[in-house]
Amino acid sequence: MTAGGRAGGRTALALARRGLCHALLLASSCLVGLPFVWMLSLSAKPPEEIFDAGFALFPDRWYLLENYGKALTEHPLLLFLANGVIVCGAILVLQILVCAPAAYALAKLRFHGRDLMFAFVLIGLLIPQQVLAIPLFALAHRLGILDTYAALVFPFIVSPFGIFLFRQFFKTVPDDLIHAARLDGLSEMAIVWRLMVPLAWPAVVAFSIFSVVSHWNDLFWPLIVIRSEELMPPPLGVVAFNDEEAGSDYGPLMAAATVIVSPLIVAFLFAQRWFVDGLSMGAMK
C-alpha cells in the first residue's frame, strides 16, 4: 500500500511536470502561431467585422469567396506566384550548381589557401544582405539588368550558407569512397554530382527549404530592383495591394497572403523528414 502510494505520488509529480512542460510549449507555439491564425481568420471576414472591437476567431458572416475571389481577380496573384516559382527555382538551381563543387573542394581537396577560402565563406555568413544592397544595386544598374528576373537572381547565386552546410556534410563522407570513385574513373565533377550530392541528399533538401523560404518571402531586394508589376514576386505583389487600396481592404489582402504562404507550407510538410535529418547530421560532425 505504502509503496503503491509513493509510486502514485511520483507519477502524479511526473504528470504535473509534464503538464507544465506542455503548457509552456503550447503557450509559446500559440504566440508564434497566433498571427498566422489571425491572418486566416481575417481572410474569411467581411470588412465590417475586421475592425470589430470584439475578438472572434470565426466570422458571423462567412466572406471567404468574396475575399479570395477579389484577391485572385483584382490583381495578378497567379502571376506573382509564377514569378516566385521562376525566381526561387532559378536561385536554388544556380546555388546548388555553385555550392556543391565549392563545398567539395573545401571539404576534400588539398590546395594552398583552402583554410583562408573557408574563412572567407564564414565571413560571408556574417554579412547581412542589406549591407550589400547599394553596391549590388549599382552593379545591377551597370549590367543593365534592373527590373528583370536576372536582377532578382544574381545576388544570391553564391550562398555562403549553402557552401558551409554542404562542406560540413561532405566532410563526413569517408575518403576511401572518393578514392574508390577516382579509381573507378569518375572525374572530380562526377564525384560531386554522382557521389557527394546523392549522399548529402538530406542536406540538399534542408538547404533547398531554407533557400526557397527566404527568397520566396524576400521583400527587401525585389522592392529595390523591380518596378514592373508583371515581374513582381509574391510579397511585393501583396505590398502593391496595400498601396493601392489605401489599407482599407484587409480581407482580400489577408486572403492573398494566405495564398502566398500556402505553397511553402505544403512543401515543408513534404520535405519535413529530410529537413530535420539534414540539420542534425550537419550539426553532429
Partner: peptide
C-alpha cells in the same frame, strides 16, 4: 588514378551506399 588501369579493394570496402 583512373588512367592507371588499377582496381583497389579497400579495408572499409568503400561501396557507394546510395
Amino acid at each position: 588514378a583512373k588512367e592507371r588501369d588499377i582496381a583497389m579493394v579497400f579495408q572499409t570496402y568503400a561501396l557507394y551506399p546510395h
